[in-house]
Design a binder for these strands. Structure first.
Lengths: 228, 228
DNA sequence: CGATGCCTTGAGTTTGATCAATGTAGGTGG
DNA sequence: CCACCTACATTGATCAAACTCAAGGCATCG
């Protein structure tokens, strides 16, 4: 999206589990090109929480993370990111309306997504939480297929998904098994996943339509009301 | 903070429970002067969630809320807000570096706070959740007193606090009673609250030091390590 | 081949939700 | 002033959803 940014950014390849610097000087700023980044918060005496996921097109700067406390930015999967200093992005934004618009849009979207995620964490039961996550991934990284099916690679490990959803990994594993038994998802291996009927899955979470709105809903093959 | 904004804003007084428009034209933008605003998300078939609280000095625009889905902005207590159109704020930000800096700072802070709140919702037990909320209020709206005490009015009703913390109102009531029994808080009536020993309360939540960092920690009378 | 990391599954326990009853403050009208 | 109503808060008894702990499966890698 922000083509004016490219010449000023450092290209980086990430590997699964790699940690990206948040604390270094110049308030580092990242734009995700492919793969998924996780913002991890580990507070003393509490389990870690994956506070946010960043998909291709998303931007984040170090000042988005709580300072001093143990926040870290991890690559969930292999991918590519652009890195630049915040001051450079600010300069570009002041000069180029397209960059300014991109930054503003991405920020507003992030806050809205976080509000939704707070609802997921605060109110949903474990099945709704998993359905929400699957819908989110399908919308951001899914390959749409005929008849309302979607396929994708789960970018996060079971443990990471659990910590993103505020669940215990054991519990999450059980919920996934239940979803498989109900035919809501099919798995070919740990990662490779197929949702045979997106609408049926979306019907499992109250957040589906809000997520569709927020992700720009590139394509949802079948209107939600049709099936499910 | 943003004095250049004042002449372009509409002054509004809020009453407890009042709803502020999010959907009207021009992407309405609010700056809180006094009192507290709540961003409420009510998804079909789920309990409502208070996704975020906005204290004096905070800013939010309608685009921060998930669109179409039922988000609303409510005044938790009587207060005063400035209202202006987003396009006006953007114009001012482009002209005045002070406004630009204010907007950027407030946004980054909001995202960091939301990350912390996600951790609170996802990992903390009910006592840690309440302690976190009390620390947050003490830092944002408390009157500091000698010997590490803080007093304030709880701006939210029990039900609102519960929905902010992802708890059941009954459960919250029990936790508050436990805190009173332990001497962590004293209440003179429903709202008026005193924390005799801030450090002891802060020791109940893993998020205390991160919150202190994020709120700018105007004054924390006694370093946390001293007591508790 | 064993070692390791990740995931799954069962048995038992606990935390917090639910339901229902009771208490309290503030407001209204007789 | 009292009776009454309503909204909000507290508290107890019961229950279930999710956590914990432990055992076992299944890949990958040296």
């Amino acid at each position: 999206m922000p083509c004016a940014v490219e010449p000023h950014a450092t290209q980086m390849r990430t590997r699964r589990g790699q940690s990206l610097a948040l604390a270094s000087d110049g308030d580092p700023t990242y734009i995700v090109r492919s793969g998924v980044l996780m913002l991890e918060i580990s507070l003393p005496g509490a389990e870690r929480q994956i506070a946010a996921l960043f998909f291709p097109g998303d931007m984040l700067r170090a000042s988005f993370a709580p300072p001093r406390s143990k926040a870290s930015l991890l690559a969930a999967s292999a991918g590519e990111v652009w890195r630049l200093r915040a001051s450079m992005l600010d300069t570009l934004a002041a000069r180029e309306p397209a960059v300014r618009g991109y930054v503003d849009r991405v920020l507003a979207n992030r806050i809205a997504l976080q509000a939704l995620h707070a609802t997921t964490l605060g109110q949903f039961d474990c099945e709704q939480k998993l359905a929400t996550h699957l819908v989110e991934i399908a919308l951001r990284a899914g390959a749409w297929q005929p008849a309302g099916a979607v396929s994708f690679d789960l970018p996060l490990s079971r443990k990471d998904i659990a910590h993103y959803l505020g669940l215990n990994p054991d519990t999450l594993s059980r919920v996934i098994s239940r979803f498989k038994a109900k035919g809501l998802i099919k798995q070919f291996d740990r990662m490779r996943t197929l949702i045979p009927n997106f609408a049926a899955l979306a019907a499992c979470t109250p957040a589906a339509s809000a997520l569709i709105d927020l992700t720009g809903a590139r394509q949802v093959p079948v209107p939600l009301e049709a099936t499910a």
